[in-house]
């Protein structure tokens, strides 16, 4: 199972992304971390090149309403809509329906449990037969 942990936009808060990347790695998954300040285009390109099963976006800047739909749209345009798209960070409750509607399978806010993130990812991939 391969996971791309990505930091879209100008957001520079990378603590959460790195912690989640390590949690995935400790759970036996292969993890690619994009580093900071990636455009949606760069993230989708990396996802396809690395042939990942999961794209986990970390956004704490409030730009998720712009960036998540854009990444989802580009994944679909590249025919990579079987990739499991997740978003974590500061995602207010009110914005979650829009995130899911845009194509994210899950959204994880502050205080999320690492083991639950990993378990959620696994079970959703299983459901998709990855």
């Amino acid at each position: 199972m391969r996971v791309l942990v990505a930091k879209p936009g100008l957001d520079s808060h990378d603590r959460g992304a790195k912690v989640v990347a390590r949690a995935y790695r400790d759970a036996g998954m292969e993890v690619v971390y994009t580093g900071l300040h990636q455009t949606p285009e760069e993230i989708v390109e990396a996802a396809i090149q690395e042939d990942v099963d999961v794209v986990a976006l970390s956004i704490l800047s409030g730009a998720h309403t712009t960036l998540v739909p854009r990444v989802a749209e580009l994944l679909r345009a590249q025919g990579a809509d079987d990739v499991l798209l997740l978003v974590g960070g500061i995602i207010p409750e009110d914005d979650i329906p829009a995130m899911l509607e845009a194509g994210a399978a899950g959204a994880f806010g502050p205080g999320s449990d690492l083991d639950e993130i990993v378990e959620f990812t696994r079970s959703n991939l299983r459901r998709r037969g990855a």
């Binding site: 995602i91 409750e93 979650i96 899950g106 994880f108 806010g109 205080g111 999320s112 639950e116 959703n124």
Partner: peptide, 11 residues
Amino acid sequence: SRDQGDPAAPA
């Protein structure tokens, strides 16, 4: 936030 992401309960 732990269970926000459950697709079975999108909203």
